[in-house]
Simulated scan of single mutants.
Amino acid sequence: MIYTIGFLLLVAFIIYGFMLTRKKKAQAFPANWHTILLKHVRFYKNLSVAEQQRFQARIMLFLSEVNVESVGFKLEDVDRVLIASSAVIPVFNFNEWYYKNLSTVLVYPDHFNEDLGFAQKDKNRNIAGMVGSGQFKNQMLLSRKALHQGFQKKAHVHNTGIHEFVHLIDKQDGVIDGVPERLIQEPNVIPWLKIIHKEMEAINDNKSDIRNYGGTNEAEFLAVAAEYFFEKPKLMKKKHPDLYQMLKVCFRVKN
Results as ranks from 00 to 15, higher is better:
Phe13Trp: 15
Val189Thr: 14
His148Pro: 09
Lys123Gly: 14
Ser208Thr: 00
His40Arg: 15
Cys250Phe: 10
Gly17His: 03
Gln139Phe: 10
Leu37Pro: 02
Met130Ser: 09
Tyr244Lys: 04
Lys100Glu: 06
Asp173Trp: 10
Asp77Val: 06
Ile196Gln: 04
Arg80Glu: 13
Phe29Cys: 15
Phe62Asp: 03
Lys74Gly: 07
Leu20Ser: 10
Ala84Lys: 04
Asp209Ala: 03
Lys248Cys: 14
Lys171Met: 09
Leu247Pro: 06
Phe55Tyr: 03
Glu181Ser: 13
Met60Gln: 08
Val105Cys: 10
Arg252Leu: 11
Lys123Ser: 10
Pro90Gln: 02
Glu69Ala: 08
Ile83Asn: 02
Asn126Tyr: 14
Phe112Asn: 04
Leu8Thr: 14
Phe13Leu: 14
Ile203Ser: 02
Ile210Trp: 01
Asn101Trp: 07
Asn67Thr: 09
Met19Thr: 13
Phe94Asp: 02
Gln185Ile: 12
Ile196His: 00
Ala219Thr: 00
Gln135Asp: 10
Arg42Glu: 15
Arg54Val: 10
Lys198Ile: 08
Lys45Tyr: 13
Gln139Met: 13
Arg211Ile: 00
Trp97Ser: 10
Gly117Ile: 12
Lys74Pro: 13
Asp170Asn: 05
Leu75Trp: 12
Phe112Asp: 02
Arg252Phe: 06
Glu181Tyr: 15
Arg80Trp: 07
Phe55Ser: 02
Gln52Pro: 01
Lys194Phe: 06
Tyr3Leu: 14
Val175Tyr: 11
Asn255Trp: 11
Ala219Met: 01
Asp79Pro: 12
Lys248Ala: 05
Gln135Lys: 14
His158Asp: 00
Leu9Ile: 13
Lys254Tyr: 07
Ser133Gly: 07
Ser143Cys: 08
Val157Tyr: 00
Ile196Leu: 04
Val71Lys: 08
Ala223Lys: 01
Glu96Leu: 15
Tyr108Pro: 05
His240Cys: 05
Lys194Asp: 04
Ala28Asn: 13
Gly72Cys: 04
Met130Gly: 07
Met1Tyr: 12
Gly6Phe: 14
Asn138Gly: 08
Ile195Tyr: 05
Glu164Met: 03
Leu37Gly: 04
Thr21Gly: 13
Asn217Trp: 02
Lys198His: 13
Leu247Gly: 10
Ala119Val: 09
Lys207Ser: 03
Gly129Tyr: 06
Leu243Asp: 00
Ala31Pro: 10
Tyr3His: 12
Val179Trp: 12
Phe62His: 04
Leu10Asn: 12
Ile203Asp: 00
Val81Ile: 06
Ser103Ile: 14
Leu116Gln: 06
Ala128Lys: 08
Asn212Val: 01
Gln245Glu: 08
Phe151Trp: 02
Asn204Met: 01
Ile184Met: 08
Val11Trp: 04
Ile169His: 04
Leu20Glu: 07
Gly134Met: 06
Ile176Pro: 01
Thr104Gly: 07
Ala84Tyr: 04
Glu76Ala: 11
Ser64Trp: 05
Glu76Met: 06
Val107Phe: 04
Val81Leu: 03
Phe7Gly: 07
Pro109Glu: 00
His40Pro: 12
Leu193Gly: 05
Ile162Gln: 01
Cys250Glu: 07
Gly214Pro: 00
Ala226Asn: 06
Asn32Ser: 15
Lys145Trp: 09
